[in-house]
């Protein structure tokens, strides 16, 4: 690695001030697991890294709001989220996704904010959180705004964050009686980046599916909601035919890209099949979520 300046501000405000609105070689680093890979590969050579790990500890807290929403500080490590009792009780889909996200060492170090700000479509958290209707809080110099998580992602490794803005929290609404599932589909070995990620949440009343959210990741350039598949599922009584149509709709509407995990045609097939399986898995929550 090539030498650079490292600063370790003690507060969020100080951290934001150390960022630069235009300079691309100055970046914030939370856990650094993703950024260090880019630095080692030589694709990112910083002049200054603004390390966030010594800012106020409140930014790492996971709390339940009065409204029953889960507020996850951006500096919470993925392990902290995985082991949080409220997450276990209220959002088992999130806990399960974390359990198979990368490996325990990465989860111990990587932070929620970093995992989202990286904009990598292969990551597991964005599709799960998006299907759960999460919102992100973003702070800049004297500014604070909140966005639906899906609106954070602008493209392949691209977000709408300004260079001097930081994600400070993620807020996940109550799941209530909504069903949920996330399937990470790997195509090469059991533990791998996904070829396709499929997350679904929906309500079920009298056997009829309501208000579905269907999100695909990894196969597309950014985490994407699939309105066509949702339309098929909305108001439908679930049977194989409906699930097939939903899978077909998903495969038709998603802009699937080829990569080392498979051709676009193959990944479309995976999306078609695993969308069906994800809905089935969400319906059958009594059985523990198993490997795909």
């Amino acid at each position: 690695m090539i030498p650079f300046e490292m600063v370790e501000p003690r507060s969020l405000e100080e951290a934001v001030a150390l960022l630069d609105p235009t300079e691309t070689t100055i970046r914030a680093v939370a856990g650094g697991t993703a950024l260090m890979l880019m630095m080692k590969a030589g694709v990112f050579q910083p002049t200054r890294l603004v390390c966030l790990h010594r800012i106020e500890p409140e930014h790492a807290r996971i709390t339940l709001t009065e409204a029953g929403e889960l507020r996850i500080g951006a500096m919470a490590s993925l392990s902290e989220v995985e082991k949080d009792s409220n997450v276990a009780a209220r959002l088992p889909v999130l806990k399960n996704a974390l359990r198979r996200l990368s490996n325990p060492r990465v989860r111990n170090v990587a932070r929620v904010g970093g995992a989202l700000a990286h904009g990598d479509p292969h990551m597991d958290l964005p599709p799960v959180l998006a299907a759960l209707g999460a919102r992100v809080t973003i702070n800049g110099p004297n500014t604070s705004r909140e966005l639906p998580l899906l609106e954070l992602f602008a493209g392949y490794y691209e977000t709408v964050l300004e260079k001097n803005e930081l994600i400070t929290a993620v807020t996940v609404p109550q799941l209530h009686d909504r069903k949920s599932a996330y399937i990470k589909v790997t195509s090469r070995s059991a533990d791998d980046w996904p070829a396709v990620g499929v997350a679904v949440t929906f309500s079920l009343h009298d056997g009829v599916l309501r208000d579905p959210i269907v999100v695909v990741s990894a196969a597309t350039e950014k985490v994407t909601r699939l309105a066509g598949a949702e339309q098929v599922l909305q108001g439908a009584a679930i049977d194989d035919a409906v699930l097939r149509r939903a899978g077909d709709a998903a495969a038709a509407e998603a802009s699937v890209l080829a990569d080392a995990h498979g051709s676009a045609a193959y990944k479309r097939e995976l999306l078609r099949v695993y969308l069906r399986r994800a809905v089935r898995q969400a319906l059958d929550e009594s059985t523990p979520q198993v490997r795909q």
């Binding site: 650094g32 697991t33 260090m36 890979l37 325990p104 060492r105 990465v106 111990n108 170090v109």
Partner: peptide, 13 residues
């Protein structure tokens, strides 16, 4: 007390 990958962890941290 927590496991990390030493190759992805800045020494000064």
């Amino acid at each position: 007390g927590v496991a990390v990958s030493g190759c992805l962890y800045f020494a000064v941290w």
